[in-house]
Design a protein around this nucleic acid. Structure first.
Length: 480
RNA sequence: GCGCCCUUCGUCUAGCGGUCUAGGACAUCGCCCUUUCACGGCGGAAACACGGGUUCGAUUCCCGUAGGGCGCGCCA
């Protein structure tokens, strides 16, 4: 039997991180078993569903590298089929018309709560003669659920979960306006789509029992179920926007790479011994449902960031340059930066990349660390760099610049030799020269190795930048 | 309120009755490397929610308690 999973988001907002993980699990499970993962857009809530949300979900999945099989199914388009199934159930005696008014329903709910019962609807139209139907009232169609016994779900993650049928009431299958409820639509769609494994958030666990009753009434086989725990915020409460319940597009804009996010997400609530790093192939072959834990996991940006740094460090230089190109359109200052990326600067970026990527946790960090390649002369040193450019330091810079001016060829080795010799000659520590040099060349106090910076920038640019800082002092003496 | 689920270092987790003086990873602290920042290396601190059982023996099984979560619509 071919495994068929599905991801079924409702397009009422962006693809949030929890949804992304659910999609990932479905995708991994199917891929690891030569199966398919289908995509169903649950757009039956016409007021809240938007095209923008659909686009955001598709875009988010694609960015994460999660591909679905076939065309997405739109649930709303299938409502005629849903209605037909409800009528079938009516005809076969598995469902009935209920004429209870909203007021009656409210009363029943109140009474149930007062008496400590979980069953809300009392089944008053279950066996009543349709002839007693009040005139002018459009009925809903309810499932004739079993009164006794139990409903059991053998969940791949949760284990065997049992409900007493006396606690489950007759759910609505078809609304009075003839539209299907979620409960009915999901069952019919999963069945028609040939879904064999339902992997979804455990907020649906209670629904699983009710859906099982519908499957049973229809005589359809129940798919394998797996209800995975939800992701919580760092404080253990529900994940909020403040915590990281953002759209995956926000993670992209923060400079996270898909491989890192996938790796982080797959390890959240699932493990494979002590392994922390998984290539896509590895996670596809290792992932399985019984190893998914039942306790909700808390979202931890620090770990995501660490993983992201790992993936950046282990990326090919050219791939990182491409990743930057792709990220730029999603950043506020992207267009300005993109304009600077002429072939010459791209070449410098690529040359500096082995050293830049060593220091970056995110692509945004990476871009920022390349500031010294992208900034215009004269550089404006940041506060800390400015503090390094004291008058004595500037004297040192003036002198070292003279030494540097005679260097040919200009490489990290030749410049290193020159600077070290210069420092030795002055009886100065290397740092005493290197730090002011860094400040003058990069405008920062941190950067890749200073000799790499020298080499990447080239002789003329370096001498120019030193002159910029040194002469600046002459034209603008401190006001004391 | 009712139903269901959950509970190992701060966090993600390993552990599936004795191997646990409880392992790994992130974060954290210290040292080393070092021109800065990182990377890397070494080391430290840090957990079985609580109470009863079952058992020769419980982190592992059962029952409570406490705490947390999810669901309880003619929403999805």
């Amino acid at each position: 039997m071919t495994v068929v999973t599905r991801f079924a988001p409702s397009p009422t907002g962006f693809l949030h991180i929890g949804g992304a993980r659910t999609a990932l699990f479905n995708w991994l499970y199917a891929r690891g078993r030569a199966g398919k993962m289908l995509l169903r857009i649950e757009d039956t809530d016409r007021d809240r569903s938007t095209q923008a949300a659909i686009d955001a979900i598709l875009d988010g999945l694609s960015w994460l590298g999660i591909e679905w099989d076939g065309e997405p199914i739109f649930q709303f388009a299938r409502s005629a089929r849903h209605r037909k199934v409800a009528e079938q159930m009516l005809a076969s005696g598995h469902a009935y018309r209920c004429y209870a008014s909203p007021e009656e329903l409210a009363q029943m709910r109140e009474a149930a709560r007062r008496e400590g019962r979980s069953k809300l609807y009392d089944g008053r139209w279950r066996d009543r003669d349709p002839g007693e139907a009040p005139p002018g009232v459009k009925p809903v169609i309810r499932l004739k659920a079993p009164l006794t016994g139990e409903t059991v779900i053998d969940d791949q993650v949760q284990g065997r979960v049992v409900w007493q049928n006396e606690n489950l009431d007759d759910l609505v299958l078809l609304r009075s306006d003839g539209t299907p409820t979620y409960m009915l639509a999901v069952v019919v769609d999963d069945h028609d789509m040939g879904v064999t494994h339902i992997i979804r958030g455990d907020d649906h666990l209670t629904n699983a029992a009710r859906q099982k009753q519908i499957y049973d009434a229809l005589g359809w086989p129940v798919p394998v179920m797996a209800h995975i725990p939800l992701i919580h915020g760092p404080d253990g409460s529900k994940l909020s926007k403040r915590h990281g319940a953002l759209g995956v597009d926000a993670y992209r804009a923060m400079g996270y790479v898909p491989a890192a996010l996938r790796n982080y997400l797959v390890r959240l609530g699932w493990s494979h011994g002590d392994q922390e790093i998984f290539s896509t192939d590895e996670m596809v072959s290792a992932f399985d449902l019984p190893q998914v834990g039942r306790a909700p996991a808390r979202f931890d940006f620090a770990k995501l960031e660490n993983l992201n740094g790992h993936y950046i460090r282990h990326s090919m230089d050219a791939d990182l340059l491409e990743a930057i190109d792709r990220l730029l359109p999603h950043l506020a200052n992207g267009p300005a930066l993109a304009a600077k990326l002429n072939p010459h600067v791209r070449g410098q970026l690529l040359t500096a990349m082995p050293s830049l990527k060593e220091r970056a946790k995110t692509l945004v960090d990476l871009i920022d660390s390349a500031h010294f390649l992208l900034a215009d002369r004269p550089l404006v040193p940041d506060e800390k760099a400015k503090a390094l450019l004291t008058e004595p330091a500037k004297g040192l810079l003036r002198d070292v610049a003279q030494q540097l001016a005679g260097i040919e060829p200009w490489t990290s080795e030749t410049t290193e030799h020159a600077v070290r010799t210069f420092a030795d000659g002055r009886g100065a520590k290397l740092g005493a020269v290197a730090q002011p040099l860094r400040a003058a060349l990069t405008g920062r106090t941190t950067s890749p190795g200073i000799f790499e910076v020298l080499a990447v920038l080239g002789k003329a640019e370096c001498l120019g930048r030193i002159a910029d800082q040194v002469s600046l002092a002459e034209t603008a003496p401190p006001i004391d």
